[in-house]
Nucleic acid binder design. Sequence first.
DNA 1: TATGAATGAGGCTTCATTCAT
DNA 2: GATGAATGAAGCCTCATTCAT
Lengths: 199, 199, 199, 199
Amino acid sequence: MAEEKMGRRARKKQQTRQEILDAAVQNFAAKGYSKTSIADIMEQADLGTGTFYNYFDSKEDVLRCLLERLVTRVHDALRENKAAGKSQIELLDIACQITAEFLDANRFVLPLFLSAATMTEVREQGENIPTPGFKPVYKSIIEAGQQDGEIRTDIPSDLIAEMFHSIFQAAAFSKLKISFQENVAMKTRLLLDGIRKQN
Amino acid sequence: MAEEKMGRRARKKQQTRQEILDAAVQNFAAKGYSKTSIADIMEQADLGTGTFYNYFDSKEDVLRCLLERLVTRVHDALRENKAAGKSQIELLDIACQITAEFLDANRFVLPLFLSAATMTEVREQGENIPTPGFKPVYKSIIEAGQQDGEIRTDIPSDLIAEMFHSIFQAAAFSKLKISFQENVAMKTRLLLDGIRKQN
Amino acid sequence: MAEEKMGRRARKKQQTRQEILDAAVQNFAAKGYSKTSIADIMEQADLGTGTFYNYFDSKEDVLRCLLERLVTRVHDALRENKAAGKSQIELLDIACQITAEFLDANRFVLPLFLSAATMTEVREQGENIPTPGFKPVYKSIIEAGQQDGEIRTDIPSDLIAEMFHSIFQAAAFSKLKISFQENVAMKTRLLLDGIRKQN
Amino acid sequence: MAEEKMGRRARKKQQTRQEILDAAVQNFAAKGYSKTSIADIMEQADLGTGTFYNYFDSKEDVLRCLLERLVTRVHDALRENKAAGKSQIELLDIACQITAEFLDANRFVLPLFLSAATMTEVREQGENIPTPGFKPVYKSIIEAGQQDGEIRTDIPSDLIAEMFHSIFQAAAFSKLKISFQENVAMKTRLLLDGIRKQN
DNA sequence: TATGAATGAGGCTTCATTCAT
DNA sequence: GATGAATGAAGCCTCATTCAT
């Protein structure tokens, strides 16, 4: 890692940046993105307002960072688990589980995720914020499953991937009194049964 | 209907109100809720800014109206179609179709629907704006299906209803190049297959 | 009186005007002048907003009317009582009593009276709203008293008149738990003792 | 004093705050409280509009500050002068003189003082803005005088204190062409003669 | 005469961003 | 790098006033 090579200076900088991100996350989670001001964030971080701009370009920049971070971590976690020779359906199940675990521990980003689309400039319909690589992970597993004959092929892989994506949305806003992870687990079961190739 | 009895004055008033709603809808659809100012709306409606407040209490009030209207219409449309003696699964299919049609014609409200949660005060996680009766419609059909033995009972009806709800979210943000209604149709197929009781 | 000669038309008009004044008075008394909108007044009067302008030029016009009315009535009441051959000091006492009675029954105008100065355009320092004839009444009695040798002459009559005026202000804002009229009575006693010519 | 210990930054901040207060005072004096906008104040202060909110919560907050400041200063000035063994009547005379001097140098606050009642919500009749300690000072001198047998006891001290208070109001709005301080002096003489115990 | 919808100027307030220290 | 005062555009909302019916 580069971290070890960084001087004290650079390490301190990283740390401050992290503190700002943490503060942002807490505020976003508590009040929502648009109701959170940069002053709010920096006060929480116990830093001067102006300092913000030494680390980020804008409030939106923070959001972008948070989302990227989320995606990256999920992506990595999944890659590790794809190793063993499980069936694709099993892999999807595991993927959902890992994602759920991560989101459960970082619940706040999901609202961000969802609101991302609405809070910024006009984008091409349904384009919202990039979130590079979140759906692709799922998509690639699904396509492998379709080639293996495990998964139905009458529905495009993209579309199925979107359904997996929506599981987390649906669970995030669920009114049910079960845990987030259980919630995701049950929804995953429904979906897995729906996509399994019928003989 | 009262409409016939209304004087010219009242009719004009209704019409203006509608024009404002339309203008709001166009702006919300184009720029999102929070990026739309009341001035934007009223300029689009070709009315003075202050006139807005002869019809609505606040921007949030407009949103509330739009959502209510959406829910009411969908609800009504569904009730009409529940008449014939179709199976519950078939009913769900029809319900999704009708909802999709409505949303397709009123696409803009879906972003609203989603962003509703984030634009106001903090609410209990997943509470967002009431949207009375949207999910309940689906839930009641599902429960009927569970009693008839058509639909699996190992997953709570609420949770299944949430998945139906999320179909529309997922379709709204879809990046695929197929039509919204087709998109919903395919996702519905996946879900219906997933909830069907296995023999 | 002209009232008897007025046709039904004119009588109705007078009555409407009065209703508006009453409504204004109630609102001013309850919320203060600047927090009262013309819409408030006209709603209270159960009339359309626009109707206001058939009777008054502006909100300030209403205030002017109310003050004029107050002054006129007090003035008249005093004139009637000045008849009998009382001493000037006694007359002043009576004058205060009548004024207090009137103000007690029309309490709301006093705040108006006081705020009048601040709520309108810039006026020469201490000019505020005309209030024609309120102080003059007192002043003329005082001057008569000075000529009769009842009242001290080392203080200008104007200045004494102002002190009488201020009695009502002081009583209006009094925090004491006695009645307004008693309050005025005691303050009057102080002042009368202060202006009496010492032998 | 903390002032000496303040850094340059803090000192500048205090100064800016003062400049805003001064600008407010000038505007209030010229146009009255409610006709003065925050933009007016800040333009006079040659600062951006938004800057106002770095120093005050609202326009009403400014008013509160000004009144507090007035009261505090008068209070202090009086305390110093109470030292020497003057009679209570003499003390009252001095008190009026000092107050008049202060108000003469800060004329603007008097209109504030008076208009305070009308510019905010309805308050209990005669409650207006706190103005803590203005009347109490006078009241305590009066009560001492009553105990010493200098001042008449048939009128409550509160009520007499209110009369002293009203002297400044009456003088502020006076139409006479004499100076404010002379005006107060004469009115004070009237009142002192009125409250003196008759043998 | 009565109406009340329409108006738009103007008030208050928030906040992302800059910049001198 | 850190600071936080200053900024001013922009948003929301109120309201006296007009005018067509």
